[in-house]
Amino acid sequence: MQISDIERDAVAEIANIAVGRAAASLRQIVGHEVLLSVPSVDILTHEEASHVVAKPGNRALIAVCQNFDGPFSGRALLIFPEANSLQLVRAILGQELPLEDIVDLEDEALAETGNIILNSFVATMANVFKRGLTMSLPTVLRGDGRQLFAGAPGERELVLFLYINFEISQKEIRGYLALLMDIPSLEMLRTLVQDFLDTVALKGAGQ
């Protein structure tokens, strides 16, 4: 299974647009600028994808996960080191709350924040392709990279893996936004990318 350079470029560019919107949502929630890396797009096995996420020092991870379904389906994850979790929740809820309240609200705050960011990310991709996607409710997962990806659609299959680092300025909070798409979906995605490229070409030709 391979994707052509222009398809990879198109997926990365559309993800770049989508993550820009998602970062703006996160910025509104935490009140600090969100710095983004350039997205990387690859066809990997789940195993390989989990290794990318579980880099040295990233063993204990926490993730908000939502599955999406429609013309293409897969799983979107907002992932960060567990050590950053309370700090992120504090950034979301405000500095004045006592620690015990923050601990109580941790999963709820993460799920809600993840929901806003992941919806913004997936919805922007859906809008670019002019197709509707449905999103599952967010779940909060803890574990290493392999555990986070367990049970995803097509567990042992190849997936399209899209990966972007983010960092919240002045907060020392880092994380990743990842998208796993299964291969039957990827076929559909290729068709949509091609349609999108055709539209771009036609528009440019003045039609």
Binding site: I6, A10, L197, A201, G204
Partner: peptide, 17 residues
């Protein structure tokens, strides 16, 4: 733009305008 697609979109729009 590092994306060829994004450059295509911009240049085609420019050519139209």
């Amino acid at each position: 733009d590092d994306s060829k697609l994004a450059r295509m979109v911009a240049c085609k729009a420019l050519a139209k305008i």
